[in-house]
């Protein structure tokens, strides 16, 4: 597995558990165990939740303040359901880390970032073919976007730019 964010590859400090084993400092549990895990949490310990893309943001909403990480599974690269889940989580106020996990391609990195993801967890087969440089390149390849409310990093929002030009009194072609 390769973990990466907008800065590049990063170490994974999280431990994913199948059973309710809370020995590690940062533990990712399945949604079904989340309530128990949060109840048993030690002071200073961080809990994350992993969900399939059939789950909905509403199921996690009660736990937003206690959750440090949400991992959303992408079963395939071309299944974009997780993008809408991420967007909903952000719109509903989740401020912890968001991780997309699955065989994405680097061209999807900007989509994930725009929808609120912070990091990508990539299976070895994908990571081996698509080195980190390709992901960093992909993140800044299209420097402008039309969709308001989806900007990230250095990406310029076109509608905001046009509005700023109007306010500054610069006629914009018309």
């Amino acid at each position: 597995m390769l973990l990466l964010d907008r800065e590049g590859a990063k170490a994974d400090v999280w431990t994913r558990v199948e059973t309710l084993d809370l020995t590690a400092d940062n533990v990712i549990v399945a949604l079904a165990q989340l309530r128990d895990a949060l109840a048993a949490r030690r002071p200073g310990q961080h809990i994350g939740a992993a969900i399939d893309n059939t789950e909905r943001a509403a199921a996690l909403e009660p736990f937003f303040r206690e959750l440090a990480l949400i991992v959303i599974a992408f079963p395939t690269g071309y299944n974009g359901r997780g993008l809408s889940i991420a967007r909903q989580l952000r719109e509903r106020g989740f401020v912890g880390a968001l991780r997309a996990s699955g065989p994405l391609v680097s061209d999807q990195f900007p989509h994930a970032l725009a929808c609120g993801f912070d990091e990508i967890e990539l299976p070895d087969d994908s990571a081996k073919r698509q080195p980190v440089e390709q992901w960093l390149d992909a993140a800044q390849r299209i420097s402008v976007t039309y969709q308001r409310g989806y900007s990230y990093g250095a990406v310029t929002n076109i509608l905001e730019q046009r509005r700023a030009a109007r306010l500054a009194g610069v006629g914009n072609n018309v």
Partner: peptide, 9 residues
Amino acid sequence: LHPEFEWLG
């Protein structure tokens, strides 16, 4: 290039 809807069903 809508980031949320580039990978619809």
